[in-house]
Each structure stands twice: as C-alpha cells, then as structure tokens.
C-alpha cells in the first residue's frame, strides 16, 4: 500500500445544487442495515443473514423460522421441480394455494411447461403425460377464468411448435428462466404474507420509490442533474459484468 495515495476531493467545482442536498442527507446505518437484513431474510439468503447478524450485531428477525423452507421451495421452482415445490408449500401452509387460485395456476402451468419441454426434447417421446396433466389439472381451472384459459391455450401451443429454434417471442417467454424466477418470487411473497409480515422486501419498495420520485421530479420540471448515478461501478471493481452493471445504474435514471 503506497503512502502517496492522493486523496481527491469528491466535490467538483460545478456541483449541482441538488447534489448538495443529496449530500446533506445522512442516512442512519441502522436503517440501512435493517433494510439489508430484511432483504436477506425475506428473499431467502439464510447464511448471509446469519453472518450479517453477527457482523453488524443485529437480531435475526422472527421470519427467519420459515427461511429454510422458503429457500428449498425457491430452489425447487428454479429447477423446474414444481411437484416438490407444491408439496413443500402445502406442508408449510395448505391455505396459501387454496386461497390464491392465480398463484396455484401459475405453478401448475410451470409444471405443464416442464412436461412439454421434456416430451418434445426427443423426436420419439410421448406427449401423453403433458396432455393428461393439462386436461386433468389445468383445464378445470381454466374453465372458470378467461385469463387462465388464454394462458393455457398459449402454453399448449408449445406442443405444436417445439422443438424449434425461432419461437415467436410470446412463446419463447414461457421457456425462459425468468418465468420461474418470477413465479418463485410470487410464491415467496405469498408465504411471507401468510405469516402476517410484509410480503415484499422493503428494499424493493425503496427502489421503486426512488424510481417513482425521480420520474415525478423530472416530469414536474425540478432542477435535477441530467443523471443521478448510484456509483455502483467505481466502487466495486470486482463486478465481472460491467455492462449489466452500467445498465443497472442507468435503470435508476430512466
């Protein structure tokens, strides 16, 4: 470590007045640690949460009880093992899927997609399991709900197009991992809500507030600098994906 490190003043001569207002705000570390802990617990990062409790000298919140189950459910959904996921959700609280028909349908549809994927991967495979599953599990539900029906029809059309290299975007969406991620996160929120806590991590609300506030401020002509970077890039050289990173910071600008 060289001793000749030159410390560069962060203040530029032409600092925007808004930037000064930003700098004047001193968020409390306790608040930020709280938001981080809340995020680790509610989105299921048990090891990090445990370490964080130790390093930052915080209490592990009560929601921690369900964290292991939630992590396993998330894993199962991410891996496409919907059967396991549904069983685990019902072990935790059968009410969750009973009361949320949309969520249950989303899970079953994910399962159907996996079945279709499996039976169309080889030329000689049998599509009967997919058809049976669709008619026994999804069709009765779709009969009562137009949205479900549309989703089911779209999903079934995968049977006709697969295997294919160029699927139309609507169909390609169904095969993307982001759909699993989305469903997994909805399931997680539903479990959290069923336990009487806020379903969503405060971190997400905060990011949304930030985005909303900037858009509002720009729309009403407040005097803001052209961009409000978070400084994710300069502070963390360890990031591999510099591109995605830059985009992430730009997101907030929008």
């Amino acid at each position: 470590m060289s001793s000749s490190t030159v410390s560069v003043s962060a203040a530029t001569p032409t600092q925007h007045p808004f930037q000064r207002k930003v700098d004047e705000i001193k968020p409390s570390k306790a608040d930020i640690n709280f938001v981080v802990m809340d995020y680790l617990i509610s989105e299921g990062y048990p090891k990090a949460a445990e370490k964080f409790a130790k390093e930052a000298n915080l209490q592990l919140p009560a929601e921690e009880e369900s964290i292991q189950a939630r992590v396993e459910i998330r894993k199962a959904i991410h891996a496409g093992d919907i059967d396991t996921a549904i069983n685990k959700i019902n072990d935790l609280n059968p009410q969750i899927l009973d009361t949320d028909a949309g969520l249950h349908f989303a899970l079953l549809r994910l399962q159907l997609i996996e079945l279709i994927r499996a039976c169309t991967s080889a030329a000689d495979s049998d599509i009967a399991p997919a058809l049976n599953f669709a008619s026994s599990q999804l069709a009765p539900r779709a009969a009562t709900n137009a949205g479900f029906l549309k989703d089911l029809e779209l999903t079934m059309s995968l049977l006709i197009f697969l295997p294919a290299d160029n699927l139309q975007p609507q169909l390609a969406e169904l095969l993307k991992p982001s759909l699993r991620r989305e469903v997994a996160s909805k399931v997680n929120e539903a479990i959290m809500t069923s336990m009487g806590t806020r379903g969503e991590a405060r971190m997400r609300s905060l990011i949304r507030l930030r985005r909303w506030a900037e858009r509002q401020a720009r729309d009403t002509g407040k005097d803001l600098p052209p961009t409000l970077p978070l400084g994710l890039q300069d502070a963390d050289e360890g990031m591999h994906d510099a591109n995605g990173n830059g985009e992430a910071a730009d997101i907030m600008v929008q």
């Binding site: 808004f18 968020p27 930020i32 905060l206 930030r210 506030a213 978070l230 400084g231 502070a235 907030m252």
Partner: peptide, 11 residues
C-alpha cells in the same frame, strides 16, 4: 451505492 440510493430518494 445503497446509501447513495437512500440519500437520493430522500432528496
């Protein structure tokens, strides 16, 4: 960056 995000949001 998270701290900055909170600052910006408040401001």
């Amino acid at each position: 960056a998270l701290e900055r995000l909170v600052q910006q949001t408040e401001a």
